[in-house]
Design a protein around this nucleic acid. Sequence first.
DNA 1: CATTGAATTTAGTTGCGGCTAATTTCTTTT
DNA 2: AAAAGAAATTAGCCGCAACTAAATTCAATG
Lengths: 221, 221
Amino acid sequence: MSLSEANQDYLKAIYKLRAHGTVTTQALADRLKVAPPSATAMIKKLAALQLVTHTPYYGVQLTQTGEKIALEIIRHHRLVETYLTEVLGLGWDQAHIEAERWEHILSEEVEARMDAALGSPTRDPHGAAIPTLNGEIAVDDWTRLSEVSGGENLIVRRVSDENAELLGHLREIGLVPGAHVAVQRAVGAEGTLHLEIEGQAHVFGIAPARFVYVETLDETL
Amino acid sequence: MSLSEANQDYLKAIYKLRAHGTVTTQALADRLKVAPPSATAMIKKLAALQLVTHTPYYGVQLTQTGEKIALEIIRHHRLVETYLTEVLGLGWDQAHIEAERWEHILSEEVEARMDAALGSPTRDPHGAAIPTLNGEIAVDDWTRLSEVSGGENLIVRRVSDENAELLGHLREIGLVPGAHVAVQRAVGAEGTLHLEIEGQAHVFGIAPARFVYVETLDETL
DNA sequence: CATTGAATTTAGTTGCGGCTAATTTCTTTT
DNA sequence: AAAAGAAATTAGCCGCAACTAAATTCAATG
Ligand SMILES: [Mn+2]
Ligand SMILES: [Mn+2]
Ligand SMILES: [Mn+2]
Ligand SMILES: [Mn+2]
């Protein structure tokens, strides 16, 4: 009993939306760019397969089995992303688009070979944790760059890969995992952050800063 | 207008069957393991897309466009096969099975990167020609090992990848592209060939020998 | 507590790529 | 030249995953 590509994409989407509480039909439909009735129909199929539990009119939740499968697909995605950037030299955004397809057809054998070739990485190129073969995944408690107040010394840990365009831009200006960032000041009224990225001054908007996760080194600049 | 995986597999199958003359519905159905009416239905769709010409009750032929697409898929397949064996170390049979899926999702970008990483190979691991980006492919005029009479000195050029099990066995006994083979004698009645593969004596059946293509070095052993 | 509006589900349709059963067409045999 | 047989096509169906339009349910508001 192997799952269709659609099945897998739904499970992955539910997993990613799960942080905001129970996953609503609408949130799922929005994320997958399908009409709400399509999401309802798929939810019922997944519930029949015992991969999710569905409380009609309230929302959907992954079962243990469902979560395990979601994590397996995410592992595939992130390993492929890492492989495509590290070994074949693709750009982050390109690698993400490719991985969206490859994640569904990667065999366990090739997964293992890629993992070995990369030295069993624990993070993908943009800092997201790669689940283990057993379906374990690191939980990060990093801060969003949009939440800092000014004066901090930070290190970038992860940038969200939801937006391909943003991803490309972040890489260009060096806002990548490992980069050191000093926050000069946050101008709330203007919605801007005055940053120093690896010594380079930059003015950055609050909106995209929501997608950059940082760790605070110290607050005494 | 991009073609579905099924569309692509049909075009590839028609291309591979084309050598035996016009491609019949049955041959196509057999190869793709579908029922004849399924093949008829798909043939009509491909004809509507001008990728094949269909003469009802007689058979189907690729158009220029159709052949070009078939060759592109075959290029993908053989590049991936080569990449998986050379770079990731998969076995031939495993690589072939994987390539059957990868061929449909390989982007031009990744295709180019793999091609470069491999040094633009012209042959896949089992000796089949890799079509160029422009859709050109080398025409081989090699002999089947089943056609030799005895006494020849041969060099293996290609082994067919139609049968995964056979492919694995051939590799084991060293009947691979580049191997030197001396034919001691062919016993027609028994359907056996007495070979020396790189110095090692082997008795080989005529049936599998049909899938091994050789070049004759000389006939004066 | 009745009303209203948004979210969700149900009902019914579509395209794709399979299938079986029935029919048609071509070829071979008598 | 008719009949038989094999191959191909047509007719009608199914599961999947999408869609729109209509009905239902829940929550918020007056
Ligand atoms: Mn990603
Ligand atoms: Mn995907
Ligand atoms: Mn092959
Ligand atoms: Mn294929």
